[in-house]
Nucleic acid binder design. Structure first.
Lengths: 212, 212
DNA sequence: AAAATTGTGAGACGTGCGTATCATAAAGGC
DNA sequence: GCCTTTATGATACGCACGTCTCACAATTTT
C-alpha cells in the first residue's frame, strides 16, 4: 500500500486493476448518492459487484467514501471565480453556479454535513478516531472573492462580516431550511437565497456610504 | 404500556416508579448532551444506573432520546413572543432570546439536525422506519410572528420571503457555519446573525417603500 | 515460461445497537 | 396480610459495521 501513489491516484491517469476498481467504486457511489441514498461501504461493494473486503481496502469507512464523492461533486464549484467589479453580480453569479450543483448533489452534501456533525460530536466526547477530518470551509474563500470588489468602499471588518453573513445564505444548509422545513421547491429556495444575498450586500454598501 | 398515559407523562406531574425513572433518564441524557456528547441509549442507561432493557423501554431509540431532550431545550424558545410594533426589535429580541439557548444546547440541536438528516436519507432510500418523524419547523411560526408588524407595509409575498430569508440566519445552522467553519466565538456568531437579520428586514422595508 | 508482486474473494471475529424473553422485585388493590 | 399488576434486570439473539487472515487469481517482472 504505497501512500504517495494512492494520493495521486485520483489526479493521475493510472492503469492497472487498482485504479480501475477505485474508479468503479467511486462512480457507483456517486450514482447511488445522486439517487438520494447514502450508501454504506458494504452497499457500494454490492452495487459495484466487488467483495466487501475489497471495498474496504479503497474506502476504509463511509466517511472516506462520502469525502471522495463530495470532492467530485465540488469540482465545478471550487473552480469558480469572477472578475466583475460589482459584488452584487459576483454573489449572484456564485449562487447561480453553486446552488444548482449543490441541489443536484443534495444527498451527497447532506451526507457530508451529517458526517461533519458526527465528527464534531466525537471530538466533543474525546473519542475522536483518526479519521480524515472533514473540512467544509470552501465557502470562506469563495465569499472572500465575492466581497473583494468592496475593498476601498467597505471597511475590512464590515467586509469580513458581510462574507460571514453571506455564508449563511449559501450552502446545503439553505436547502435544508428552505426545502425541508418550508417546503419550497429548489427554484424558490434559490430565489430566496439570491434575494437575501443581495439584501446583505446592499446593506453593507449602504452602511459604508452612510459612514463615509 | 398505556399510550395515552405515556404521552402526558411529561406534562402531568405523575408519581410512581414509571415517571421517576423516565425523569431520571431525561435529566441524565440532558446533562450528558450539554456536556457535548451525544449518548446512545445504552450510555444513558449506564450513566443513569438503570439496565439497558429498562432504558430501551422509555426511549426505544436514540432518536426518541434526542427528541425528548430537544423538547426540553426548546421550552423557553417556543414560549417566545413579542408585541413590539417594530419588526427590527422583534427579530433582535428573538435572536437575543433563542440563540444563546441554542448555543447552550449546541450538542443537542446538532444531534437533532443530524437525526433529521438521517431520516431524510432513509426516506430517500425508502427504508423509512416507523420512527417518530422529526419536525424542526418551529422557526416558521416564530418568524411569522416577527414579520407580523410589517402587515400593511410590506406585501404578503415579500413578508413570506423575508421570513424565509430570516430563517437562514436563525438556528443551529448559523452556529455550525460561523463557529465551526469560520472559527468565530459564540458572541461573534450572534452578532453576525443579528446584523444579517437587521439587514434583511431593512432591505424588505426599503424595497416596500420604494414600491409604494 | 517461471517467479515475484499485487489485487481479490471468502470467511471468521469482535463490537455496538435494537429486540425479545423470562424471572425477580416493587407497587397498588382487596 | 395476600394477590394482581407493573416495573426492573439479566440474558440471549439477530443484525450491520469494521477488521483481520488466508488462499487464490491476476498482473508484472525476470
Amino acid at each position: 500500500m504505497d501512500v504517495s501513489r494512492q494520493q495521486n491516484e485520483t489526479a493521475r491517469i493510472e492503469r492497472g486493476p487498482r485504479a480501475r476498481t477505485r474508479k468503479l467504486m467511486l462512480e457507483t457511489a456517486t450514482r447511488l448518492m445522486q439517487s438520494g441514498i447514502t450508501p454504506s461501504v458494504s452497499e457500494v461493494a454490492e452495487a459495484a459487484e466487488v467483495s466487501r473486503a475489497t471495498a474496504y481496502r479503497y474506502f476504509p469507512s463511509q466517511a472516506a467514501l462520502v469525502h471522495a464523492v463530495v470532492d467530485e461533486a465540488l469540482g465545478p464549484i471550487l473552480g469558480w471565480s469572477s472578475d466583475s467589479p460589482d459584488a452584487c453580480i459576483r454573489v449572484a453569479d456564485l449562487l447561480a453556479t453553486a446552488m444548482p450543483r449543490i441541489d443536484e448533489f443534495e444527498a451527497t452534501f447532506k451526507a457530508a454535513l451529517k458526517l461533519s456533525l458526527e465528527q464534531w460530536a466525537q471530538r466533543q466526547a474525546g473519542t475522536l478516531g483518526n479519521e480524515p477530518l472533514f473540512k467544509r470551509g470552501h465557502r470562506v474563500d469563495l465569499l472572500k472573492c465575492v466581497t473583494a470588489p468592496l475593498q476601498g468602499t467597505v471597511p475590512p471588518e464590515s467586509r469580513e462580516r458581510l462574507a460571514q453573513a453571506l455564508s449563511l445564505v449559501f450552502g446545503v444548509e439553505v436547502l435544508i431550511v428552505l426545502k425541508d422545513i418550508w417546503g419550497l421547491t429548489s427554484e424558490s429556495a434559490q430565489s430566496v437565497a439570491e434575494w437575501a444575498a443581495k439584501a446583505l450586500v446592499d446593506s453593507a454598501l449602504r452602511q459604508a456610504e452612510g459612514e463615509a
